[in-house]
Nucleic acid binder design. Sequence first.
DNA 1: GGGCTTATGTCACTCAGTGGCACAATAGCG
DNA 2: CGCTATTGTGCCACTGAGTGACATAAGCCC
Lengths: 219, 219
Amino acid sequence: MSTVTPGELTLRERKKLRTREALIDTALRRFTAQGFDDTTLDELCAEVEISKRTFFRYFATKEDVATAPTQDMWALFLSGLGSRRLPRGGPLMELLGRELLATVEEMPAGGWAEHAVLSCRLAAATPSMSAHSLQFCDRTTRAALAVLRERFGFDPRDLRPRLALDLLVAAFHCALEEWTARPGPASREGLAACLREALSAVPGAVTLEVADRQGPGGG
Amino acid sequence: MSTVTPGELTLRERKKLRTREALIDTALRRFTAQGFDDTTLDELCAEVEISKRTFFRYFATKEDVATAPTQDMWALFLSGLGSRRLPRGGPLMELLGRELLATVEEMPAGGWAEHAVLSCRLAAATPSMSAHSLQFCDRTTRAALAVLRERFGFDPRDLRPRLALDLLVAAFHCALEEWTARPGPASREGLAACLREALSAVPGAVTLEVADRQGPGGG
DNA sequence: GGGCTTATGTCACTCAGTGGCACAATAGCG
DNA sequence: CGCTATTGTGCCACTGAGTGACATAAGCCC
């Protein structure tokens, strides 16, 4: 949640936000340059000029500061899913896809995409970051499932909404991978385009047939 | 020199397997009784009568010993996918489902199901375990994707095989949840039944429509 | 038995993360 | 302005996971 309105914030709150941003920015830079595991919190804290004790008042773990961009995005997706006016009558999968696309395009223009790319590239190379990220995704998915049940009256025993959400997450991860692999400046629009492409592959995932060629049958 | 070694394993190997089993069994019992975070490795090692240093020669992390049952299953699934004779001509999703069901039914009868249930219940209550488990799943999925591409000649740019694998994992997690929630003794057959049910919901995940009732439209 | 390999134990260390407490900065009030 | 309650921060000591180096013990093979 970085809805910054400098006029309406007290000095204390502005300072806190600035420290948080400085932490994320510095962390992503240092982790990218030196590696996540090879950068100690002591170094990071020294550069931001805070004590290690203070770091843990901003982020619960070292992984949290490095995965903040995607976590912020999923949090926004979730709150949108709970508060937005949703259309009715179409396929759930398409509705979810549109919601996620809308969320991506609502992310702050100033630096989010750049941070997100760095964070994702780091995650791809750092097991503990990827684990942390995946776990956050899982929690968000469960929360989203509760929202869907509440808003559309799905039977809790019906597995299809949950599978649809997992499919959405899978498509998003495909999109992220493609997006972060591309050279050049990163943008929300680029991510949205990758996501649209990934979502279009979803129906085929269930129906795809294995070719009947004669390869090595295995043994 | 003495005659044959039973089971074709040397004494050293048998000892190692026994230590590994003892670690898993003791760990799951203590973690279940005391909580994962409130049990130190020192306690665990004292009970199994090995040094902490030796523990880390069996498992890379504390989470690994607690998630061993599912990791063992996925490892078997992966090796089966690489070595088994696979049918051709049907939908990939069904092939994957059959492979996973076969893997479940191939797990050792002696204690695996009981361990797996304990492990999954722990994971549901322990973020770091769940994160670790999810990350392992992700790695396995990528490895499986490489196998599928190699054996069936899928285009690396085609996202559908990957989405199918993620869908398989999602269905498996649904099955695990249902299975671990059930009272009574746990069995591979029970898990297989849950998995069959979850797999049958897969096609509906893509096509499911949202009801056109007039609930609270949100706002 | 003797020599080789491999598993294990011991010790010392790094670093993430926490609890407690003192101190400093800000907010709010007269 | 000064005074006080609140809240953020620094410092210190501590726990516990995980690692590297090196010595010793256990199993293996001849």
